[in-house]
């Protein structure tokens, strides 16, 4: 009985670990196998002779480096924009106690749950008219707007925890409200900014629907679209897909594992703040 009490949770932990990480580890095994070995039945659990050929070929026939750069530019720009707009709004809500706070946070909840497909046709039409289709801006604008609700929640909850005395002291010293935001609040809330920024960056880096429909063709294509369109007309290159997937995922996984606690706090603040 005592053994069972220890054994059952241990087994459950092991099962949870295997379930969560197994498919990703399988992706790693797949990426390291030779093409010939990929199509062996039954599949081997480990690559017999590990090779990096798929990783090399990902960059060979495709503009994959450019796709990575595009994703990085779009994600960084939209995260910065979401932080700029979000911190101003959060300052107004949490510190200046503007009227309509509940309304704004409620609207943010609505925006966060908005079905993006409803925006695709009008944004396509608008950007088409403005000649902005297949440009960075066509992705930065919607990505920033869709990341804004989460940014706003995370920053509002961070700003709300800052002791008001600090700001009063700043006012006494002759700081304008905007100066107080810039010189006092943002440095103090740096961890909150980092969390919100990372969440916004990940959202944009992973986003697919806008990337496909507003900038899916041409030079600004992002990595998610590039990977999804890898399966060409011929045989599906599973090895290359696995390698490309790992390249796209690795940086995000590293960041998230390093900043685990903050990410979880930010994520749940968003969910429970509404």
């Amino acid at each position: 009985m005592r053994h069972a009490r220890r054994l059952v949770p241990a087994l459950a932990i092991a099962a949870a670990l295997a379930w969560c990480t197994g498919p990703v580890l399988w992706q790693l095994v797949t990426a390291l196998k030779s093409t010939e070995e990929l199509y062996r039945v039954p599949p081997g659990w480990l690559p017999a002779s590990p090779t990096l050929e798929h990783f090399a070929r990902v960059f060979d026939g495709h503009p994959f480096g450019r796709n990575l750069l595009n994703s990085a530019v779009v994600a960084a720009a939209s995260a910065l924009a979401a932080l700029a707009f979000g911190s101003l709004a959060a300052y107004g809500l949490a510190i200046l106690k503007l009227p309509g706070t509940r309304l704004v946070l409620g609207a943010a909840l609505g925006a966060a749950m908005f079905p993006p497909i409803a925006l695709v046709s009008p944004l396509f039409t608008l950007f088409d008219r403005l000649g902005l289709l297949n440009t960075y801006l066509a992705l930065i604008v919607p990505h920033a707007a869709l990341a804004l609700p989460l940014t706003l929640w995370v920053l509002t909850s961070y700003f709300g925890e800052i002791p008001p005395d600090i700001l009063k002291a700043a006012q006494v010293d002759g700081c304008t409200p905007l100066g107080a935001l810039w010189h006092i609040l943002l440095p103090v809330a740096a961890p909150g900014l980092a969390t919100a920024g990372i969440l916004a960056f990940i959202y944009s880096w992973n986003e697919f629907l806008f990337a496909l429909s507003l900038a899916g063709t041409g030079e600004v294509r992002t990595v998610t679209v590039a990977i999804a369109l890898f399966p060409g007309l011929e045989e599906v290159p599973w090895g290359q897909i696995a390698a490309a997937s790992l390249i796209v995922t690795a940086p995000v996984i590293v960041v998230v594992l390093l900043l685990q606690r903050r990410i979880v706090a930010g994520l749940t603040a968003g969910a429970l703040g509404g």
């Binding site: 949870a16 670990l17 969560c20 990480t21 498919p23 990703v24 399988w26 992706q27 990940i202 880096w205 992973n206 697919f208 990595v223 998610t224 679209v225 990977i227 999804a228 890898f230 897909i241 696995a242 997937s245 796209v248 995922t249 995000v252 996984i253 998230v256 594992l257 685990q260 990410i263 979880v264």
Partner: peptide, 16 residues
């Protein structure tokens, strides 16, 4: 570990 599936781009998890 539970964060790993969550942080993956959906495109990547679909292909996987």
């Amino acid at each position: 570990a539970v964060l790993v599936p969550w942080v993956l781009p959906t495109v990547v998890s679909s292909l996987l």
